[in-house]
């Protein structure tokens, strides 16, 4: 490398670190640094030289729930990357009680779920909802789930488009709880014996959209639930906290 090359690399690196390069020049340096160790080394050097200026950046505060949103995105990434069922505990699976027999008794509602907990130790209850067996001509109809905190007040409403795998969870009466977060789960024998997380429902002030990375056939026969978990989500990978009750409704009969 001659002297001119060295000077040019230094100028490129310093301006890249300063941030004064335009879009095309930045893109060029970003690409070139991958193949030119001397450029990468110069960038590292200038980052060190200018790092003292970071002292002047004063602290600022983002919204308090931002970290939960970050965790939710990580959780979603994990969920999308999952290709095989995790090893799960029978205890977690026992949290979900499928009340198909009750569902069959309801003529107008073809989606039902109720759950109770089998974990006596913590008195946890995990709420489940389950879509019905789909009748001919109704496979495209979206499903709507109502998650009720008690007999009269819905906490969440969830709409589910099985074909696009798109879930929209709209908080209704759900309240944020200090140090806690809501977590959405899916349970299906096709993906293993225990519930799988579909991510955190971190911001209860706005609708939350999620795309489920499972096939329509799996979703159609799956159960869904929302549990209350410690901040950051279930520490065990399975629902651990108390849950709210819910029911699923078809939007077409």
């Amino acid at each position: 490398m001659n002297k001119d090359d060295e000077v040019n690399i230094n100028l490129q690196a310093a301006e890249y670190v300063l941030g004064t390069l335009d879009k095309a020049e930045r893109a060029f340096v970003e690409n070139a640094r991958l193949n030119r160790p001397e450029l990468q080394q110069a960038i590292n050097q200038w980052q060190g030289y200018f790092s003292g200026l970071n002292d002047y950046s004063t602290e600022a505060t983002p919204r308090s729930e931002l970290f939960n949103d970050i965790l939710a995105k990580l959780d979603q990434q994990d969920s999308n990357l999952e290709s095989t069922p995790n090893i799960t505990t029978a205890m977690a699976a026992d949290n979900i009680i499928d009340l198909q027999s009750i569902r069959r008794k309801l003529k107008r509602w073809r989606l039902i779920a109720i759950s109770t907990s089998a974990i006596a130790a913590c008195l946890a209850v995990f709420m489940v909802v389950k879509p019905p067996v789909t009748l001919n001509g109704q496979s495209n109809a979206p499903f709507v789930a109502v998650f009720q905190a008690d007999d009269s007040q819905p906490a969440f409403i969830m709409s589910l488009d099985i074909n696009t795998q798109q879930l929209t969870v709209r908080p209704v009466m759900a309240q944020e709880q200090a140090g806690k977060t809501y977590q959405l789960w899916i349970k299906s024998d096709d993906i293993g014996p225990a519930p799988k997380s579909l991510g955190l429902l971190t911001n209860v002030s706005a609708p939350i959209q999620k795309r489920i990375g499972y096939e329509a056939g799996v979703i159609r026969n799956a159960t869904f639930g929302i549990s209350v978990e410690p901040m950051g989500g279930s520490p065990t990978g399975s629902p651990t906290g108390p849950a709210i009750h819910g029911k699923l409704y078809p939007t077409a009969l």
């Binding site: 970071n54 950046s57 602290e59 600022a60 505060t61 931002l66 970290f67 901040m231 950051g232």
Partner: peptide
């Protein structure tokens, strides 16, 4: 989470500035 708590205000200050 510990790392975030320790650093996010500074990083947010850099971005917000």
């Amino acid at each position: 989470s510990v790392l975030y708590e320790a650093t996010h205000r500074k990083l947010f200050g850099v971005v917000y500035r």
